[in-house]
Structures are given as structure tokens and as C-alpha cells.
Design a protein around this nucleic acid. Structure first.
Lengths: 335, 335
DNA sequence: ATGAAAGCGCTAACAT
DNA sequence: ATGTTAGCGCTTTCAT
């Protein structure tokens, strides 16, 4: 039972393969009568056009396939983004190949190489911190690229991010506004661009309120919930412990939660909203970003490039939103 | 700047295209000296083999691409599954096309048709409730199919599920063991196989404890958190309200949470574990299933089929686990 | 409206 | 070890 080809359909319908091609692709120049006979043969044989072969020969060399390369598809944030990209692609008749990098430059390269070898028309990329020179030649050959969530150093392509720095600044200012002066920063890997931005926003807020930075209150490289919990315990053991916390992603926020109430209450604002954040005690105040909007914006940019837009690379910054729920007011001298 | 082909590389290296083919694919019969010259030309031109063209001509007609079709990629459960499938695929040098169906048979067909038109070697499918006759011809033509999370009615393929019925039975028995006799069932769309199974498990537990079923306590079609919350309110207004709840997915569990404490406390066991379920008040007792294991198992089955396994379709049932955290003990006469 | 010939980029099969 | 020929399934181009 091999896959039938146009030749088989042509034989069954008593026409030439070329006529089948036209009929199957809905092109003009086929009489209604012939079209019906072809359709009949297609149904009988269960014929389906081989789109790989098709795109090999077509004048317009598109495969109608894009690649989506994220840090980790299992991360709800990227899952939402992926779904959003998929919907935009589906609307346009495009398919989506997905790959996770684990933030490893080597795996990123492997995945992208496999994608371009399949002739994807474009790539939506959450870039790792590694170099991206390997993208130059595919891009010259026509592969369009859009970065999302973070920019790729030295890569001049459309990029969609959120205002990480301003969002962090607002979060920390909120804590400052409640009278806190000793605000700890709990962050993830500092080699991730978003983390550096959020740290800069933290410093911005302190500076604009005339609070000197205390290095003892800054922790980077918190890569898991236990790391975050341990960091909080250390901070608590300080001679002058913080009265408030700024956590830079949901994992850290959650990791730190259990230690919020005792011995003294500590205020908290976290980056990233997540389900149930409003139902915890205390309800968590967070900076929220919209992964669906990120994905849709990136996809729209990519498709306009695929459709021929050759203008200069654009940089789109989406806004974050501070959601005040209560955890930012507790602790400190305000209570 | 068109994409260079083997011909271009051949010219640059002063050899025939066939030699380039052999060199690039690492096949024997190329002198080290020639291989080096080819490699040099490849680098200079930024050549990359066109794998679509390759698979068109190869004896073994594989594309090393599989399709993953889920209900909704944004759902954390399927996102975890997808990541797990992707990892298995990556290990074997396969790529993954993804598509969401929204549980709509029509979109399922569209997505699968687009996948098979790209000659995917196999499909991992969370089937909708619609018919799957359209899969027959691709399968005869060599496309392997594995169902996951739920079976496809009338489709004889490998299927990986969890013991939904037994898991539900255990959950409800747990509540019965705490003295509850009026246990409500709050379920999602009854046309979803997993929901019917969980409902059957609910009835099993009642029956084995000699408790008659009370139709007033059974609610289906709860498709969102507000629906679930409203259903609980109605149940509470009953002359003889339930003292415990069995909820059949995380959305319903969460939707119902706010109404758990007042006016009377109600016990709860939910199907599906989710992040922070242990940190809510009360901590939620749940039946947990492992999406990563589901994905990995399905992928392994699929790849063994792709590798030539022609044995009869298998059905793999993974076990769920009852996680007792406290919410199952409250309410009822046990307090 | 239909078909024949050529060729997309690659590799199987058969030379040499 | 290397090259030549043919052809995968399709569409372009140019007939008719």
C-alpha cells in the first residue's frame, strides 16, 4: 500500500498528471467535468498531495512552515506563547515546528539547523545567551527571524519584549511607597537578559528614592524554588534583614512564599503573574506580562516579513501591569 | 542570495554533486582529501542540505518528523506532555510539528491533513470525540499513529491513558472513608472520554459502599471556573446539600475552591494535581497523573512503530496516585 | 482546456 | 574513490 501519487490519480481519471495538479490545487483551466472525474479518483485512491515535493518545485519557494524555538515548552509562559503563535499560523495556513533549547546555545543551534534544513520560512526565537552568527547565512538565503521575550545580542531582527525594567521599577517603587527601605532582590540567572533588565529596574527605583544599594540584599542565580527559599533564610539571618522582597520570576516567588510570614512578616512583589496568585495568603502583588500578546505580536511581525516586508528591523515593547493584591503592603514600618 | 545547492558546492570544490552528497551525509567512499575540500566549500558557501528534497529521493522514505496533536497546547498538562514528546523526538533526531484542536473534530482533521501532507512519519494524537476514518488511508500509506490521554473510538492503534476510573473510584472512596455519604460529582463535558471514565469511577465507589446514587448531586458540562462555582452554589441551596465534592479536573477544582468554607465546610478531592495545590487552604487532596510519563510512553510506542514494529496495537494504562493533603477530611459528619 | 518536456535538490543504482 | 544517469512527486513553461 504505497502512497498514491498524481500519476496514479491521472491514470485512474484518464487524464495527464498536469491536469490532476491543476485540479487538486484549484487552479483555473480545468473543465468542471474533468475536475469532477479527478476528484472522484482522488477520493477512491485516498490521494493527498505531497506538499514537500510541491514546495521543492514551486516558483514561490515557501514551505508554509515556521519554527518556534523557546527556552522550555513546558513552562506555562512559553506554552501560552506557543499556543498564540500556533493560532496565528493556523489562520494563515502555516504549520509550526517547535523546539526547546533549555537555554543551551548548543541545543539552540541544533534545533535551528534542523529547522532550516527543512526549509522553514521563518523562525520565532527566544534566544539563548550564545552567539547567533550561524543565523546569518540562513537569513541571507531567505529565512526570516523574529526574537521574542529577549533580544539576541548582535542580531538585527524584529524583537518583541516587555518593559522589564520599567515593570521592575514600578514594583520596587510600590514597596518603597509603603515605607520599605530594605528591599531585597531575588533573581534568576544573571546571564538572562530579562533578569538583568529587572535588576536594573530595581536599582532605578532605589536610586530615584535616594536609597543606597545594599549588596547584601541582592541575590542572583536562584534557579529553583529551594534555592529561593534558602536565599530568603539567609537574608532573614542578616543583622539587618530586609522588610520587603522583589522576586524576578514566578518560580522564585513561589519558592519564597513559605518563609514570608515568620518570624516577621515580609512584604513581596513578584515578577510574573500565575494562576492562584490571588488566592494565596497573602494574595500576591505581581507585575504581569501577557505571553499571548507576545506570541501574537511576534507572529504578526514574522508573517509580514514572510509576506515581503523588507523595512528596517523593528523593536516592539509591550507593557507590563502592576497588580496590587496585598502582599506588597505588609511588613516594614508601615504595619 | 539564493540558497546554495549541492551543485554549487560541487563546482566550488571541483567535484561532482554525488561526491558532495556522500561527503555531506558522511557516507563512505570519499577520500579524506576530497572530504576536506568539500567541507571547505560548504563552509564558504554556507551550504546546508535540503532535507525535504533528500527525503523525497531516499530509499527509506522517512522525513524524521512527527506530528503532535493535542486539545490545547496552552494547557499546562498538554504542555508538559508536549515537552516530553519533544525530548524523546530530539534524542532520536526527529522534529515535532504541533497543533491544537480545541477539541473540534473539524480542526483536528485540518491539522492532521496538513501534517500528513508534509509526510510526517507518525502522529501522537489526543483524539477529539469525532470520527477518525480519515486516518485510515494515511495509515495504510505508512503513517503511524498513537493515541494518548484518551482512545479514539473505532481506531485500532496504540493508546496510552491513565486509570481514570480507578483513580476516581479511589478519590471518592477516600471521601466515603471519612464518613461522607452525600458526595457531589462536578464534571466537565460528558462527551470527553476521560470524564465519562471518572464518572464511572464515582459510581463504582458509591456502589461498593452501598450508597445510592443521587442524581441531584451530579453536574456535568462544567466548562469553566465560573460554571463550577455556580454549580456549587446550586448544590449548597439543595434541601439536603452535599458534604463532599469530587471534581474531575483542575479548572473545576479551582473554580469551586472559594465556596468550600462557607457557610459549612465541604470536603473535596479533585482529579489532577496542579502547582500550589498544596499551599492553598485547605491543602487540596487530589488524584494526580503524570503528563511527562504519558508523553514519553506515547513517543516510545510511536518510535518503535516507526522503527518497524508491526505487532498488534497495545493499550498502556499508567497509574494515578491519590495525594492526601487534607481537603478530603473536612466537612461531613467526620468533623 | 489539456498535455509534453524539463527540472526543483537530492540520492539509488550502476558505471568506471 | 568518483562520476553518470535516472527519477522521487510535483509544477513551470511552452506547446497544442
Amino acid at each position: 500500500m504505497k502512497r498514491p501519487t498524481m500519476k496514479d490519480v491521472a491514470r485512474a481519471a484518464g487524464v495527464s498528471p498536469m491536469t490532476v495538479s491543476r485540479a487538486v490545487s484549484g487552479e483555473p483551466g480545468v473543465s468542471p467535468d474533468t475536475a469532477a472525474r479527478v476528484e472522484q479518483a482522488v477520493r477512491e485512491l485516498g490521494y493527498q498531495r505531497n506538499d514537500n515535493a510541491r514546495s521543492l518545485r514551486q516558483k514561490d519557494p515557501r514551505t508554509s512552515t515556521i519554527g518556534l524555538v523557546v527556552d522550555d515548552l513546558a513552562n506555562p509562559f512559553y506554552a501560552l506563547m506557543a499556543r498564540s503563535v500556533e493560532d496565528e499560523a493556523h489562520r494563515r495556513g502555516f504549520l509550526v515546528l517547535v523546539g526547546s533549547t533549555n537555554d543551551e546555545p548548543r541545543r539552540e543551534r541544533e534545533v535551528i539547523a534542523a529547522f532550516t534544513a527543512r526549509q522553514v520560512d521563518g523562525l520565532i526565537l527566544v534566544p539563548t545567551n550564545g552567539g547567533h552568527g550561524f543565523l546569518k547565512q540562513p537569513m541571507e538565503a531567505g529565512t526570516r527571524v523574529v526574537c521574542v521575550d529577549r533580544p539576541a545580542k548582535g542580531l538585527a531582527v524584529d524583537t518583541v519584549t516587555v518593559d522589564n525594567r520599567a515593570g521592575a521599577e514600578r514594583a520596587v517603587s510600590h514597596l518603597l511607597g509603603h515605607g520599605h527601605t530594605r528591599i531585597a532582590y531575588l533573581g534568576d540567572r544573571f546571564d538572562i537578559w530579562t533578569q538583568r533588565e529587572r535588576h536594573a529596574g530595581y536599582l532605578d527605583a532605589l536610586a530615584s528614592h535616594g536609597i543606597p544599594e545594599d549588596p547584601a540584599l541582592v541575590r542572583h542565580e536562584l534557579r529553583s524554588q529551594p534555592h529561593a527559599a534558602a536565599a530568603l533564610a539567609e537574608l532573614r539571618a542578616l543583622p539587618r534583614p530586609p522588610t520587603a522582597l522583589f522576586t524576578t520570576n514566578d518560580l522564585i516567588t513561589i519558592g519564597v512564599m513559605d518563609g514570608l510570614g515568620h518570624p516577621d512578616p515580609i512584604a513581596l512583589v513578584g515578577f510574573d503573574d500565575f494562576p492562584l496568585a490571588d488566592r494565596l495568603s497573602p494574595p500576591l502583588s505581581v507585575v504581569s506580562q501577557d505571553p499571548v500578546a507576545l506570541g501574537a505580536t511576534a507572529a504578526n511581525l514574522l508573517f509580514s516579513r514572510i509576506d515581503g516586508d523588507r523595512s528596517a528591523p523593528r523593536s516592539v515593547v509591550l507593557l507590563t501591569r502592576l497588580i496590587v493584591r496585598g502582599s506588597g503592603a505588609g511588613g516594614g514600618r508601615s504595619r
